Simulated assay, not measured.
Amino acid sequence: MYQVLGPKILIGTACWLAVSIFLMAGHFGVSVNARIVVAVVDGTLLIGLANPVWRFIWNRTGPLGRWLSKKVYPDLNGTYDVVLESNWPIVKRMLDASRKEDERFDPFNLDQPAPDLQRVELEATIEQTWFDICMRMYPKATGAVIKSSRTLVTAPLESTAAKDKELVYLFEQENEKRAPTDDERFYGAARLVIDPAVPGRLSGEYWNNRSWRRGVNAAGRLTLIKRLVSRD
């Protein structure tokens, strides 16, 4: 999550910590009281990096927590209900047409309706710290095609005047059932936009390289809704 702070804050913090080491060591003729103040500031910064501390501030301090979520980055930790909508039925429709097992289908003909997207329900867990964000996805029911999916690289993106905050990541996926043309594992990427109006909702697109050598790799939409946890 540190990536969203920007280079000025990161460089400034690194410079402060470097200078504070010299100050606490008694260099530059700094008084004992000043060294105590520096040590308290450094300790506060380090304690603030601990997950229980920053998550408490983000989630339990009302207006301050909401302001930090908006200005820095929201706390994404938790379990999510996921709806994956795949364009595989469209790919399969083209394959069936090429084998003459179905009528001719032209994906560029907007007057010819395309098959509905395939809907799959999953669940995801996100573990977020200041230094890393990890996501794993699993099927909700037995017999699903997807066995598991995990992130390899994640990048939180800050908001701008033109776009909201985002989570971009690369993932590795393994399927429970594989076709003869399938790879044992395959890779993909996703770009999720964090909804500023609905806390705990992320949505966006994904794409993968599954069976790309055969030209049948798929893409689609992802929607994640965070499960509410009682704080009583």
Score class of each variant (00 low, 15 high):
residue 2 Y to V: 02
residue 5 L to I: 01
residue 5 L to P: 02
residue 6 G to C: 02
residue 7 P to M: 05
residue 9 I to M: 02
residue 10 L to V: 03
residue 14 A to W: 10
residue 15 C to F: 12
residue 17 L to A: 07
residue 19 V to N: 01
residue 20 S to N: 12
residue 21 I to M: 11
residue 21 I to F: 15
residue 22 F to L: 12
residue 27 H to R: 08
residue 29 G to N: 10
residue 30 V to T: 14
residue 33 N to H: 09
residue 33 N to V: 14
residue 33 N to P: 03
residue 36 I to P: 00
residue 37 V to N: 05
residue 39 A to L: 15
residue 40 V to P: 06
residue 41 V to A: 11
residue 42 D to I: 12
residue 42 D to S: 12
residue 43 G to H: 13
residue 44 T to E: 06
residue 46 L to A: 13
residue 47 I to E: 11
residue 49 L to A: 14
residue 49 L to T: 15
residue 50 A to E: 14
residue 51 N to G: 06
residue 52 P to D: 10
residue 53 V to Q: 02
residue 61 T to R: 05
residue 64 L to Y: 04
residue 65 G to C: 08
residue 66 R to T: 07
residue 66 R to S: 13
residue 69 S to C: 12
residue 70 K to L: 00
residue 70 K to I: 00
residue 72 V to P: 04
residue 75 D to K: 01
residue 75 D to S: 05
residue 80 Y to D: 05
residue 80 Y to I: 01
residue 82 V to D: 04
residue 83 V to H: 01
residue 84 L to F: 06
residue 84 L to V: 11
residue 87 N to K: 08
residue 88 W to F: 14
residue 88 W to D: 02
residue 90 I to E: 12
residue 91 V to H: 03
residue 93 R to V: 02
residue 95 L to M: 10
residue 95 L to K: 04
residue 97 A to V: 07
residue 98 S to P: 01
residue 104 R to Y: 15
residue 105 F to R: 01
residue 108 F to R: 08
residue 109 N to C: 10
residue 114 A to K: 14
residue 114 A to H: 08
residue 115 P to T: 07
residue 120 V to M: 13
residue 122 L to N: 06
residue 124 A to S: 15
residue 124 A to L: 06
residue 125 T to R: 07
residue 127 E to K: 09
residue 128 Q to V: 02
residue 129 T to L: 02
residue 130 W to G: 00
residue 130 W to T: 00
residue 134 C to M: 06
residue 134 C to I: 09
residue 136 R to S: 12
residue 136 R to E: 14
residue 137 M to E: 12
residue 139 P to F: 01
residue 142 T to S: 08
residue 143 G to Y: 06
residue 144 A to T: 11
residue 144 A to G: 12
residue 146 I to M: 14
residue 146 I to P: 00
residue 148 S to F: 08
residue 149 S to A: 14
residue 155 A to D: 06
residue 157 L to A: 11
residue 164 D to R: 13
residue 164 D to Y: 10
residue 165 K to D: 00
residue 166 E to H: 14
residue 167 L to D: 07
residue 168 V to G: 02
residue 172 E to M: 15
residue 173 Q to V: 14
residue 174 E to V: 15
residue 175 N to I: 03
residue 179 A to W: 14
residue 185 R to H: 05
residue 185 R to G: 00
residue 189 A to M: 13
residue 189 A to I: 09
residue 192 L to I: 06
residue 203 S to A: 15
residue 203 S to T: 09
residue 206 Y to D: 03
residue 214 R to D: 11
residue 214 R to N: 11
residue 215 G to Y: 11
residue 216 V to R: 11
residue 217 N to F: 10
residue 219 A to Y: 06
residue 223 T to D: 00
residue 226 K to E: 06
residue 226 K to L: 09
residue 226 K to P: 03
residue 229 V to T: 15
residue 230 S to R: 15
